[in-house]
């Protein structure tokens, strides 16, 4: 199962069932390292479900049954000897609604890193918090109020705090589930700029319902429809010269 050099995640024949409902059909795709991959499609198409398969968040839904392989670093993360907790540590996630913990800004970032033993309490932890906040572009705004609760920040700041929190665990991949849909345009712009910066170090996969956003930031785009992966190609190709009729219809706004 050797992967191509620049392929980070290899998905093979992935099927997902919620009870009797067959939600994802035979998805196969290669996701490239240090690129931003956008998953687009009308709501209910399975793009968020697919995203959650990549760090085994669907394990939390007892009715969900998953078949197929998701190979990361030559290892299927659904193998029996793989610990889903270790998977989630390596593959971080940012959610649609900013969800900072009801703790201080500092603790929000330090919490998981301390638990994972990445740093010890003290100077090294302070350093990590600062580094993560700088990377998330939030340091200047919060450096004088690290002990204030994370929930006291504005929506856009909260979302960047959540990104900083994810970075602090030092993952390889960051999954983002419509990270800007709850934010205003200015905050959205900041987060998009941040993503372009972050892809130098991380592989980013983003679910978005906003096609313009995919066009602006994604290197690769995958179009999902009713649980099928219809088309997956470079973003330009998808937007300018799609192969499939359905993709074209969606891009041109005929449905969705």
């Amino acid at each position: 199962m050797k992967q191509e050099k620049n392929t980070k995640i290899q998905v093979r024949d992935l099927n997902l069932y919620y009870g009797d409902n067959h939600a994802l059909h035979n998805i196969s795709m290669d996701i490239q390292e240090n690129k931003i991959t956008a998953l687009i499609g009308p709501s209910g198409c399975g793009k968020s479900t697919f995203l959650r398969c990549l760090n085994r968040m669907n394990d939390l839904i007892t009715s969900a049954k998953i078949e197929g392989e998701v190979i990361i670093d030559d290892k299927n993360i659904y193998d029996k000897d793989v610990d889903e907790v270790a998977v989630r540590k390596r593959i971080g996630m940012v959610f649609q609604q900013p969800n900072p913990f009801p703790k201080s800004i500092y603790e929000n970032i330090a919490y998981a890193a301390l638990k994972h033993g990445i740093v010890k309490k003290g100077a090294s932890c302070d350093e990590l918090v600062e580094k993560s906040l700088i990377q998330a572009g939030l340091w200047e705004e919060v450096k004088h109020k690290l002990s204030e609760p994370g929930t006291s920040l504005s929506g856009g700041q909260q979302q960047r705090l959540c990104i900083a929190r994810t970075i602090a665990v030092q993952p390889d991949v960051i999954l983002m589930d419509e990270p800007t849909s709850a934010l205003d345009p200015i905050s959205t712009e900041k987060i998009e700029a941040l993503m372009l910066e972050l892809k130098k170090q991380y592989t980013i996969i983003i679910v978005t319902h906003n096609m313009q956003q995919a066009g602006r930031i994604a290197d690769m785009t995958a179009f999902f429809h009713m649980g099928d992966l219809i088309e997956y190609a470079e973003t330009e190709t998808i937007f300018i010269n799609p192969v499939e009729k359905k993709t074209e219809d969606y891009i041109t706004g005929r449905f969705g």
């Binding site: 968040m57 989630r88 971080g92 969800n99 929190r165 994810t166 665990v169």
Partner: peptide, 9 residues
């Protein structure tokens, strides 16, 4: 979800 997503048990 946020905590589990960070790799917490």
């Amino acid at each position: 979800k946020a905590s589990l997503g960070l790799g917490m048990t």
